[in-house]
Simulated scan of single mutants.
Amino acid sequence: MMTSDRQRAANRANAQRSTGPKSRAGKARASLNAYRHGLAARTEIGSDRGQRIDELARQLSNLMPGQISLAHARLIAQAEIDLSTARAAARTLMSQLCGPAPGCDSALGPGSLSDDDGRVGAVHELKMVERYVRRAQARRDRSIRLCLFGRGE
């Protein structure tokens, strides 16, 4: 289906109006979008994330000698570490909503969010974190397929 000239003109006009926030306050608010939960942030220098990735990559490479290169194992390990980080964030939010899971040493108790606004906010955050969990799972699975079968689709 081809886009009509009229539709293309309307799309261009809409694009000209959709340029993001104009006010200083709006720009400041929009600049915080990526900092909501920190999962998309680059890790700080000095964190042990790189060491954890290298260790897991070596373990994967040793489990499958000759079948997987260290570079491919590193891709899988990075995705797995991201996945475990996102899952930990989801567990923390669930703990805030429902109390700690059995066997969890979380200091948060049931109903630690005393107001409904806090619970609504935690549910919203949980939905965003779950999106990161799904993306990390897909990236890990794609990396595994790429390493084992030579294709990532």
Rank of each mutant, 00 (worst) to 15 (best):
L148K: 06
C104H: 07
H124F: 04
R134E: 14
A122Q: 06
A122E: 06
I53Y: 06
N33V: 10
S4Y: 02
A40I: 10
H124P: 00
P65K: 08
A15P: 01
G38K: 05
D54I: 07
N11G: 05
T19H: 00
R119D: 08
F149C: 10
S4R: 03
S69T: 15
F149D: 12
I144K: 01
A107G: 13
L70G: 00
D116T: 11
E55P: 00
R131H: 08
I81V: 15
G50C: 03
L113E: 07
I76Q: 04
R58M: 09
A71V: 08
R12F: 01
P100T: 02
L97Y: 14
Q137R: 15
C104G: 02
P65R: 07
V129A: 11
T92A: 12
L39V: 05
A90C: 05
L63G: 02
H37Q: 03
E130I: 07
A136F: 04
E44A: 10
Y132A: 14
L93Y: 04
A28S: 11
R8G: 00
A90G: 11
Y132K: 11
G66D: 11
R74N: 15
N14F: 01
H37C: 04
A88Y: 03
R131W: 02
R58N: 10
Y132Q: 14
F149W: 10
A79H: 02
I45F: 13
Y35C: 03
E80D: 15
A40H: 08
A122G: 09
P65T: 06
R119K: 15
Q16A: 06
I144S: 02
G111N: 10
L148A: 14
L56C: 05
A13V: 01
D48E: 14
I53D: 07
A41S: 03
H37T: 05
H72L: 13
V129F: 07
K27V: 06
Q51C: 09
R42Q: 09
M64C: 07
A136H: 03
L97R: 15
I76T: 08
R91F: 12
A136D: 07
G118Y: 05
R145A: 09
L93T: 09
R74P: 05
Q51D: 14
A107W: 06
D117C: 10
R145T: 03
M128R: 14
L32A: 12
L97N: 15
R131T: 10
S84F: 03
S18M: 02
S69L: 04
R145Q: 05
Q16H: 01
Q7M: 09
